[in-house]
Design a protein around this nucleic acid. Sequence first.
RNA 1: GCCCCCAUCGUCUAGCGGCCCAGGACGCUGCCCUUUCAAGGCGGUAACGGGGAUUCGAAUUCCCCUGGGGGCACCA
Length: 476
Amino acid sequence: MADVRVRFSPAPSGSLHVGSAHTALFNWLFARHHGGTFILRIEDTDITRSRAEWVDGIQTTMAWLGLDWDEGPVLQSTRFASYLAAADQLLASGDAYECYCTEDELKARNEAAKAAGRPPGYDGHCRDLAPDERAALAAEGRTASIRFRTPDHGVSTFHDLIRGDVSVEWAHIADFVIVRSGGTPLFFLANAVDDLEMAITHVIRGEDLLDSTHRVLALRAALGAPDRPVYAHLPLLVGADRAKLSKRHGAVALEDFHHDGYLAEAVLNYLAMLGWAPEDGREVLAPDQVVAGFDLERVTHSAAFFDHQKLDWMNGEHLRALAPDELETRARPFAVERFGASLDGGTFRGALRIGQERAVTLVALVGQMDFLFVDDADFAIEPDSWDRLVATDQVGTILDAVLAHLETCDWTVDAIDLRPVLQPLGVKPSKGLTAVYTAVEGRRAGLPLFDSIHLLGRERAVARVRGARDRLHRDA
RNA sequence: GCCCCCAUCGUCUAGCGGCCCAGGACGCUGCCCUUUCAAGGCGGUAACGGGGAUUCGAAUUCCCCUGGGGGCACCA
């Protein structure tokens, strides 16, 4: 497939949402798979809802995910002249007309229609006004919007790469506004004009836009387009209630996943698996592998549930696949944010080495090593863990023996093995060591103890075990 | 209300007429490994929404029903 040109065209009315990111990703995958061009177009024709900071945020987040674009960002707000010229052309050809109905009137008539059991949508009130009628309305001080005249009869059909032929009767599609009474163009117009001018070959977007395709295509034809792009409507992403994913379903802003310590390649991988599956069934893939195997015709038809649990698993898979240096590069910002100046490079690398195989996110990875970097004055055992330590059989004996060992043992080894200390006491390692985990790491479970003690250093390790032992005696 | 789209384990999916009394993955769960927690290894649990039709044969084709979702803005 040569000369593929696709675009991702978000409205900058918020930060990039996982549903939008899903659409962006599929466009990007398609473009990259076919060696085509991926264009970023910002659909900000509604200037009251758009904000420059969101335009920046969308780009930042796309860059984080690894979705690079070849052209743009093209802001539709800078192209109003083109859209308005197209509107004039449609007015001249009779495909569009001026509508003097006010928003309040439309709303009232719509509600009346619904109440009467008739379908909502424009009723054609200003469709065939005579010139003198228009002049009279304008004289009242009304400003006209411009509406596109849809056919009264017949059927609109287009072919969707994923869903096959999709048809609807024109009688069900009301005339729609393409230019606001304030003189600014609307989505349908800008979309049709830009897809035409940018020579978009494939339109890949969410299924929620399926019905609007008929209108865009009609506009496009009225504008004199000789052809149509290929359409592919993606399955929607839904929450636990099976409704379209939105803010009330929890974290849906893509930047949140970044901040929560998810790896971009894991998010990309997971998002790709929502609605698409590689032919060989392998699920954990690097971005270039997803690109290589991607095929729009293998995209599924039904809405997909965004499963955080599976994302967590997948993130762990990608985390464990990272080379040591790369892991350090990714984790360091999170560690710096959490520990600041107390972060020691050597200890950090050691902790990463033993933490990598058990963490789900970078945040969790850094979180489990906090006992190494917290100020010793601030170190505290979790209350619940302390209670259970106190209740442990022979806890005093265990801590005394461990303390004695830590003060005298050889510290030049790789890790401080405490099993020989416990053995003479007749304490089961798993049980006795839980008490030591609590004393050293502040909780009953965490990074491997023997390595952790070594990373902590003799002085600090001894201080922690002594602290626990002394507190035990005080309480007793 | 009208229109459109969709329908395989709890979830993501494989399956495009016989290879399927349905395969993989997440989750859950049993065992093993094990200094905790994980990770890992080996098992287990669990699905073709219902009814017709076509066919020698249907998860796969067609129709109806049911269910779910989306749309019907001077948002995109």
